[in-house]
């Protein structure tokens, strides 16, 4: 990026100026809260177990930071934290969320991430991707014969997608303004 002679311009740089900034506390606190929510809340209303807040938060920060590297690191951290609270081998959620973070950051360079409709669609897409890829991984890597319930996954994805819009709206408030 420092070389002015480079004719090929990294897309990340192109949009870098649009990237949102957050306080470090926000970047740590929000995902932790999301994970806590997932661990704690479904005890009282099992329905809320379908909310994949850690994923939605990962997608949000990756989208808004617009940096694939940040997305990768962020996704990996959230995923590993989730893994360590589950009974699964460490790395399953980690790998899936790493990929989600990367792709979300890549996509942010092509879409108007402030748009509610775009957020809805992306939320849906990434949740579906997340569930599907988790299934692929547990089948491929661990050989667990989980069944992939397409209909259920679609419904869960849709539910999460609807949460995306208000959730992201709230998270928008936490952005730092230059």
């Amino acid at each position: 990026m420092t070389d002015p002679q480079a004719t090929f311009v990294d897309p990340a740089v192109l949009r870098k100026k649009d990237a949102s900034k957050f306080k470090a506390a926000t970047l740590i606190g929000v995902p932790l809260a999301a994970i806590l929510f997932q661990v704690y809340v479904p005890r009282f209303s099992p329905f809320l177990a379908y909310l994949e807040l850690p994923l939605l938060v990962t997608v949000y920060f990756s989208l808004m930071r617009r940096s694939p590297v940040a997305g990768v690191i962020f996704g990996a951290c959230v995923g590993l934290a989730q893994d360590s609270l589950s009974h699964n081998p460490l790395g399953m959620f980690g790998i899936v969320k790493t990929l989600v973070g990367y792709f979300a950051a890549s996509m942010s360079q092509r879409f108007a991430v402030q748009n509610s409709l775009v957020r809805l669609v992306l939320g849906f897409f990434f949740l579906f991707f997340h569930q599907f890829f988790y299934w692929v991984l547990s089948r491929g890597l661990l050989g667990e014969e989980l069944t992939f319930d397409l209909e259920r996954t679609l419904v869960v994805a849709a539910l999460n997608a609807f949460v995306t819009v208000p959730l992201y709206h709230i998270l928008d408030k936490l952005r730092l303004v230059d």
Partner: peptide
């Protein structure tokens, strides 16, 4: 990577010495 995994980790050594979970 997946191919590598299958060959080296999952089906590594004898076919029967598999992962604990599979």
């Amino acid at each position: 990577l997946t191919g590598f995994w299958v060959l080296q980790v999952r089906d590594g050594e004898t076919n029967s010495q598999l992962a604990e979970r599979n």
